[in-house]
Write a protein that binds this DNA or RNA. Structure first.
Lengths: 126, 126
DNA sequence: ATTTAATTTACAATTATTGTAATATGATAA
DNA sequence: TTATCATATTACAATAATTGTAAATTAAAT
């Protein structure tokens, strides 16, 4: 597929790159609307997919409610707050090698560690 | 909350305990319907929540399409097939300790490793 | 300039999940 | 045992996230 970096896509990529909150598609849509008032949800979803396919961002399956998007496509890990669903990056290497025997015949292509916890803000308000 | 182990709940728990496929709520519903033809989706979802709250099963946020349920409530890890979304358990301990400094102020309560790969069946059909 | 493929938009549709209200169930106390 | 009452179930509607469709638009390539 030929991938065209349209103004909408450029904007969404830029928004993501400076956003550390791991926004949802709706979050992206709301911010993008400020620059492109007529932008559609479909364009946002479409763009997120294209950016993902081209390894410019990555989709996170971590929040029980919806997908979140991470501007850093390189493999790394995350912590999610079990109270407010805040997500933050963890840039550390862990040894999670899975030997053939334990891989159940799967050809392993990657791995990720997810940490669950309570963020500082939520910790205060208990 | 008082938790009543009704026939429907008993059935769902039993179904899950002998199911290694990490079924979705809909999968559970379909099987449960064989014994309780009038069972509702709401009862299934409600039961899955209750069983989870009572630490008899655990919900998995791993499949991009929907929640999956694991009969084993104890912390362990999973492999998911990126082709067909098959999920299997990994019962191994990994050292994923996160020192305070790197926890970004979060109070960490748990962690899980997710492996991505291609299952034997999907590997064949390439 | 013309053709053509990719993209965007508006909007409908789908899928997973949750909410509501009436009825049914079953535990507990009289 | 029977009455009471909280909890659970069901049918069904509603919501939320995401995806599909088709027409119009854009822009790359001839």
């Amino acid at each position: 597929m030929q991938f065209r970096l349209t103004p909408q896509r450029m904007l969404i990529l830029k928004l993501l790159k400076k956003d550390t909150t791991h926004p949802s598609a709706e979050d992206v849509y709301k911010v993008a609307k400020k620059n492109f008032p007529n932008i559609s949800f479909k364009t946002v979803y479409n763009t997120l997919q294209v950016l993902q396919d081209n390894r410019l961002i990555q989709e996170l399956i971590i929040d029980r409610r919806k997908k979140r998007y991470c501007p850093d496509p390189k493999p790394h890990h995350h912590i999610i707050c079990t109270e407010c669903n805040k997500v933050v990056d963890v840039h550390l290497k862990f040894n999670t090698r899975l030997n053939e025997k334990r891989a159940e015949g799967f050809k392993i292509t990657g791995s990720k560690v997810t940490f669950y916890g309570v963020c500082p803000e939520c910790n205060m308000t208990v």
